[in-house]
Design a protein around this nucleic acid. Structure first.
Lengths: 141, 141
DNA sequence: TGTGAATGTAACTTTATTTGTTACATCTGA
DNA sequence: TCAGATGTAACAAATAAAGTTACATTCACA
């Protein structure tokens, strides 16, 4: 399949919304910045709405934040756009041979190490807020 | 695309080789434990050979370890079967709008946080050796 | 109250990538 | 030499993300 870019796109969408309070950006405006189709943006809107991060106005259009940027971490955003299965870094082949000592135990044995690695990654994402990202963008600007 | 299972398969292959010193397992034997095609196993053999972990005997067939299980970490195995691009957890959409403040800076700004998260994950993989995994399999047996 | 511009969403296509499979050249110990 | 293995190319199948089209629905405003 293609590389999954929903997470970084979601971050970019939230930055655009946070930085443009006056003219609330529409899916068309955002799609231009991300270089994709407006429908792709609207699909991510749905995830961000469900997570309680934004509100989207029908009819007139536009979006705004429901939380302050310092209340949203990168991990929160990650969870909003990818379910637990998708967030798992390491996957197992299906149908491991249960008659084989290795095949029947490897998944259980590796699960521990994999969980630790996954948690370490996620804890780093928890350390960074949307506000941190926005500040960096302003500095670089 | 499909879920990438090469990493877990490589670990399983190395466990099978480490645990069967007498009758060195062939790609056919291993394929049965992993539940896949022997060619898939041979493709991973190539990565493990290139990394210096195993030797594969042509003609007669079979494989054996060139390093001790305590000299190979999960991170080493990860690197052997996935190049750097594939190991990257987070990907960016291509063609971000360079005329937009967010589009032109987001990748650079996020890179820092993403690198930290990636490193945290990889450091956990460095803590676990093939020997640790094999011991756990024996205990569970 | 009609209109224009936006969102919500279904349905389908395109593209990318992994795994599975077939086939066959090559190798090696007995 | 031969039986059984690996090495590898080439192609098919499966899967999933992103792109696209289409259209119903919504809402501020003239």
């Amino acid at each position: 399949m293609r590389a999954n870019t929903r997470f970084t796109e979601a971050i970019q969408i939230l930055c655009l919304i946070a930085l443009k309070k006056d003219n609330m950006p529409t899916s068309d405006h955002i799609a231009e910045s991300v270089n994709t189709n407006p429908v792709v943006i609207r699909r991510i809107f749905k995830n961000l709405k469900d997570a309680g991060f934004i509100a989207v106005k029908r009819g007139i259009g536009g979006t705004y934040l429901l939380l302050k940027p310092n209340q949203i971490t990168l991990f929160d955003i990650y969870c909003a756009v990818e379910d637990e299965d998708k967030r798992a870094i390491f996957k197992f082949h299906e149908g491991l041979n249960s008659k084989c000592i290795v095949g029947s135990h490897i998944e259980e044995v590796l699960k521990d190490s994999f969980t630790r690695a996954q948690n370490a990654m996620e804890n780093e994402l928890r350390q960074v807020t949307l506000e941190n990202i926005i500040e960096q963008i302003k500095i670089n600007k």
